[in-house]
Design a protein around this nucleic acid. Structure first.
Lengths: 351, 351
DNA sequence: CTTTACTTTGAAACCGGTTTCAAAGCGTTC
DNA sequence: GAACGCTTTGAAACCGGTTTCAAAGTAAAG
């Protein structure tokens, strides 16, 4: 069953005007006599006319679409950011489309090309393969990168303060009395991972403690393996800085099997602040990334870019907080939030 | 920084041929002499030319894009389906874009319009608002609906066998010795919810047991409230059929607070079969929906539709299985899978 | 050597909108 | 009542590809 859609010429004919006039009525791009405008509006309603966005954007070179490319559609943290992007976008008359690159550079390239070719107004992309640089160089759209160092041709980089996050979690764990905190070290190929590691190491050194860590990927598949390995290598561990919130589910499983109690024997601090952390039992103490802000800011940058064409590249580093819940034994007299500078850091650098 | 993209005319000029010839080389749509083809390919490489998909699809009326509209980007079950759609699509040279309607009919309508306007090749949409019927009627694209009754103008409906799922979970719980199983009843406005309820009720009646239930939305926000209410109203409960896997996290929390042990005091059977169920502690016994098949089939239907234009509407009901893990006390001599017909039910009905 | 058949090719039309441009319509002013 | 300025309007060009169509070129057949 093919339904044929009304075109602008159909509307024009019905209203007894030219297509140009119909276009002017739709877009309000020029004055049209009240008389004719009324006839046009009626004709639009009668025909059920919806302008063909393809034709429109072929001329306008803007489709009011923001593309969001993620390595996995199953990453809850990234999806929560996506929701914020979507909300900000929609409030400004934009739409967000989410593309799953599946950690596959070919798909990533294909989606960048698709978004370019469909005249999207910008791309928000998360930490990705480095061999994508050529694709990005050839892409004329504004590109906002999440969670990556500001190298290559990007319009802006939006991140939370991973260094502060690493420090915050470590300091709190020590303050709660952990003597041997161990870090599930995030992948060092990402600057976010390096920064967090740095924060951890520095705090350890400031307290004269030996930094201990085990390398951990972000994917939840590896959570179980890493958790087991951690406990084997550091059986005396009494505090764990998880690579992210999701991994903590696996950690719980291993700890329970070994009969270790949380937070009595081992304290845990997660990372990200996804909603799931609050649903776990015990509820997860974690470093809150400003998920909402990251998403909204990224979308806003692209929307502003469309209007302004401001050419200078910027790097935004948003502050993090610690959300204290049940996986830590709080020191006396503490509230449920801890630290965080509250300041957004903004580095400008010309292109 | 604006990078201007090469156009087909630039390539043509460089290769000393007409744009038509370049187009023919790119698409293989007609024979071109080896000599010229070679020159064209070189010119394409030299200019870095990428055809503008907008212009292309304006003429072709196909963008090789499949739209997937979900009520929430945070629904893990739907995202796992999305991943399968994406994989199937990509293998056939299609791309999937995910649109988050946020349970907002306006957004839903906006995205349907967007996908129509961008010449997407089809839409896959999940259980949604009924007042969308007009939008769907006006949409000329193939539409596959997940998890909804076959009413309205749809190309196909793809579902898993919710009736069988309801029966399966209930039967297994009884077989494991539950005397008072309680159902977290899914929303009855969806046919999937009604079918599951029906399956539950029938099995109860067959065993001379009183059906007990409490209405539960799918959203994880309501999980805690529903779980508490369930235990208040049915304190003697010894088996719970959860509304979905995600909700079980909240259930665990409440049960642990009350000191009830799983599966010793209360057994739980989840629903959906998301990966998260295996990460929980204890690992969740659950009804496995054929997530991969649902996604791939939906995508395949649209891809075939593009090629064939087969007009008849179909309803696919895919079989479910029970995955036995740790939240049930298995009856003697049982394996880790239970029941399931293994047959896909296919209802054809002309339009 | 002419006729016929087939292949290769570029000019032009097309997809469905938006915008430019110039003409027509109308009111003011001198 | 002629000249001027302003507004409204439609014809045509445009966006960047794809495809049709007819012409030109080539090979085979008579």
């Amino acid at each position: 069953m093919v339904i044929s859609l009304a075109q602008i010429s159909d509307v024009a004919k019905l209203a007894g005007v030219s297509p140009a006039t119909v276009s002017r009525v739709i877009n309000g791009s020029a004055k049209v006599s009240e008389e004719k405008a009324k006839r046009v509006l009626e004709a639009i309603k009668a025909t059920g006319f919806k302008p063909n966005e393809i034709a429109r954007s072929l001329y306008k070179k803007s489709s009011r679409i923001i593309g969001y490319i993620v390595p996995s559609i199953l990453n809850i943290f990234l999806n929560e950011i996506g929701r914020a992007i979507e909300e900000e976008a929609f409030e400004h008359g934009y739409k967000m489309i989410l593309c799953n690159s599946d950690e596959n550079p070919k798909k990533e390239a294909a989606y960048i090309q698709m978004l370019t070719a469909m005249n999207a107004d910008g791309i928000i992309i998360t930490a990705n393969n480095d061999n994508l640089d050529e694709e990005i160089r050839n892409c004329p759209l504004p590109i906002v990168v999440l969670d990556k160092e500001a190298s290559g041709r990007y319009t802006a980089v939006v991140q939370s303060d991973n260094y502060a996050g690493g420090r915050l979690a470590t300091e709190y764990l020590l303050k709660c009395g952990s003597k041997h905190p161990v870090l599930m070290r995030p992948p060092q190929k990402y600057s976010s991972g390096r920064q967090r590691f740095l924060g951890y190491v520095e705090v350890c050194e400031e307290h004269g403690i030996q930094p201990l860590y085990i390398d951990s990927p972000f994917s939840s598949n590896d959570g179980l393996r890493c958790s087991k390995e951690l406990l084997e290598r550091f059986p005396y561990v009494d505090g764990i800085l998880a690579v992210n919130d999701m991994t903590v589910l696996s950690l719980y499983k291993v700890l329970l099997m070994q009969g270790r109690r949380v937070p009595d024997d081992i304290m845990i601090v997660g990372y990200d602040g996804i909603e799931l952390g609050g649903l776990m039992t015990p509820e997860l103490t974690t470093v809150l990334q400003p998920i909402e802000e990251i998403g909204r800011l990224s979308a806003k940058i692209i929307i502003d870019q469309v209007a302004d064409k401001t050419p200078d590249r910027q790097e935004y580093i948003l502050p993090v907080k610690l959300k204290v819940r049940q996986t830590t034994r709080p020191p006396a007299g503490s509230s449920d939030e801890f630290g965080g500078t509250g300041e957004t850091i903004l580095k400008k650098d010309g292109v």
